[in-house]
Write a protein that binds this DNA or RNA. Structure first.
Length: 605
DNA sequence: CCTTGTCCTG
DNA sequence: CAGGACAAGG
């Protein structure tokens, strides 16, 4: 008998309160609605399909691709292969098996969600465009490069009106300043601006590689001084252009199917790990605590330490609703990036990598810098550190990649004067973080992203059976259509499944442990059942689970207990009555959830 | 017929 | 978690 899993209250009779839906409304911390829609313009970035054979077997393209890859690899700074040639890896036998399958009942026009490998080929209403577009852009960029080269080398015009002869100056005069100021004062700058700044920053590191890759050997020493200025300028321009090319390619690739993401993820992961292994000046020993699960309730819940006798169920009147508005508990940075075992499903892996990377938000990184054995901590509460979690799965990669490029370019570059001061860097990164995470919400355009999923999970604490209308009301930034709606409904269906399975399991466990009175079963925050559920819907434990959810869970547990102990589980549909009961216990969802940027806005500032 | 929900599978 | 089959309700 595990005392933690099921509590046996000394007295019962409090269950009548349970049916009372916990209503919470009076607290609506004025969700700030941003005029985000105005930024929604830049969203139709075409995506590429690396799986397109045409794309690969075009010789012409391959050359360019090789160059880009060289650069990308250089950015990763890891000699890890990334084997470009073996991309044809999946020859899934999707042919024979399905052939004799029955008729597909409803062939929905297309899936909105992340495309699945395999049959997803024909549904691409947007995927198909990717390859050609990237190709086109690469071509254009290359042309521009060539023009530029000719232009400069002919020495026709000493002063290019567009950008001016930067000369010995570092070249990025006005834009640099604008970027700094802009990010400092208003993080939500326009996307184009951020994009500029983004590639601009890259150039600091990228410069070396770019010149390696793109330049013929030169001897500046022999050149006349005027030419040297030109040379410098040319370098800057090339650097910038290449950076932009890489950036845009990365962006397109990142916007694509998870498979590619995961691939890049592994690459970046290597980068991160490498970066982390760098000795850091602020090395503090304050992170030996891996934050075991057992500490979760204690940290989040002051009442976790309350004597077991005073059950939350016994005091529903104290808290007409759960007293605290749902909030994200600012969690001290804890988790250094971990090496994701490659045995994990790719989606999980992706999420993990993402969250780990995102966990290294500016503050988190600088505040503590553990150099830990990555393998010692595979996944516990990794998502907890996921700060701007609404930031989708796309940009953060780029962000972090950049972040680490700047921070740990290489053992040698590390000593270059790239970092004027830590504080400055920190601010800049914060700004970049904000900008990126913000704009990326819009870059994700249609479809549901991981942020929506997480939000849905949190909403599950309030409602198990949300109507489609409710969902529409609470996801204002989602363009609902049939597919999206059913996908989200499916999410909740899956949530329920997990929830019921777990609860039933614990009910049976209680029975097997000899519990007689169902009213003895109460779910508390330190219950094992709660731990499991919380782990599922609130992985990082960065959300205050409402008390009403505990009550619902208790009711569910008791209902399962009753049914099973009465032997009703022999009936094939014995769960139906339970479902019906639970379906009536949905609570109102706090208003703040209606904000399209709900959890992100809590991370700002 | 369409939507919603469950079950089962991967 | 997504897909698909299937059933039930409007």
């Amino acid at each position: 008998m595990d005392p933690n899993s099921i509590l046996l209250p000394p007295q019962s009779g409090t269950l009548s309160h349970l049916a009372e839906p916990c209503m919470e409304d009076a607290r609506s911390p004025s969700p700030q609605k941003l005029a985000r829609d105005s930024l929604f313009s830049c969203s139709q970035v075409p995506s590429s399909s690396l799986a397109d054979p045409d794309w690969f077997w075009d010789e012409h393209i391959q050359a360019k691709r090789a160059r880009v890859e060289t650069i990308v690899q250089g950015m990763c700074l890891s000699p890890s292969p990334l084997v470009p040639g073996s991309t044809q890896s999946r020859d899934s036998p999707r042919c024979a098996e399905k052939a004799r399958e029955r008729k597909r009942k409803q062939s929905l026009p297309m899936q909105q969600g992340p495309p699945k490998p395999g049959p997803a080929r024909d549904r691409g209403n947007r995927k198909g465009l990717g390859g050609p577009c990237v190709r086109e852009q690469l071509h254009l960029l290359k042309q521009q490069l060539r023009h530029l080269q000719e232009h400069i080398l002919q020495g026709t015009e000493p002063g290019d009106p567009a950008s001016g002869p930067g000369g010995s100056e570092k070249g990025k005069g006005p834009l640099r300043a604008k970027q700094r100021n802009g990010h400092g004062s208003s993080p939500w700058t326009m996307d184009s601006d951020h994009h500029q700044g983004f590639s601009r920053d890259l150039s600091g590191v990228e410069k070396y590689r770019a010149s390696e890759v793109e330049h013929q050997p030169e001897e500046p020493g022999f050149l006349p001084s005027g030419t040297e200025a030109l040379l410098e300028f040319l370098r800057e321009e090339l650097t910038r252009t290449v950076s932009q090319a890489v950036d845009s390619v990365l962006q397109k690739v990142l916007l694509d199917p998870p498979g590619h993401l995961a691939q890049l993820g592994r690459c970046f992961q290597g980068l991160v790990l490498q970066g982390r292994s760098e000795p850091s000046a602020s090395e503090g020993g304050a992170c030996k605590d891996p934050l075991p699960l057992t500490t979760l309730p204690r940290r989040a819940q002051p009442q976790a330490g309350v004597p077991l006798g005073s059950l939350s169920l016994a005091k529903p009147l104290d808290s007409p609703s759960y007293p605290v508005s749902p909030r994200m508990i600012p969690k001290p940075y804890q988790d250094p990036p971990a090496n994701c075992p490659s045995t994990m499903p790719s989606c999980i892996q992706e999420n993990q990598i993402l969250s780990q990377l995102m966990g290294h938000g500016p503050n988190g990184y600088w505040d503590s810098s553990p150099s830990q054995d990555p393998s010692s901590r595979s996944h516990p509460s990794s998502e907890s550190a996921l700060r701007p979690w609404g930031a989708v799965r796309l940009r953060p990669w780029a962000l972090n990649q950049q972040q680490y490029s700047l921070t740990f370019p290489s053992p040698r570059l590390e000593h270059l004067p790239l970092l004027p001061s830590v504080k400055m860097e920190q601010e800049g990164l914060q700004a970049v973080t904000n900008t990126l995470s913000f704009s990326s919400v819009h870059i994700s355009f249609e479809g549901l992203n991981s942020g929506h999923l997480k939000k849905a999970k949190l909403m599950f604490f309030f409602t198990r059976y949300p109507s489609s209308n409710l969902l529409k009301a609470y996801f204002p930034d989602v363009q609902f259509n049939r597919c999206i709606t059913s996908q989200m409904i499916k999410w909740f269906s899956n949530f329920r499944e997990f929830y019921y399975i777990q609860t039933e399991k614990f009910a049976r466990q209680a029975i097997s442990e000899g519990v007689k009175n169902p009213k003895m079963l109460v779910v508390l925050r330190d219950s094992e059942l709660f731990r499991v559920l919380n782990m599922h819907y609130n992985k990082g434990n960065d959300f205050q689970v409402p008390d009403c959810f505990l009550e619902i869970a208790s009711v569910t547990l008791q209902e399962f207990f009753r049914a099973v102990s009465a032997g009703k589980d022999s009936d094939p549909s014995w769960k139906k009555p339970i479902y019906k009961i639970i379906s009536k216990l949905d609570s109102d969802i706090p208003e703040i959830f209606k904000s399209s940027s709900y959890p992100q806005e809590l991370f700002r500032s």
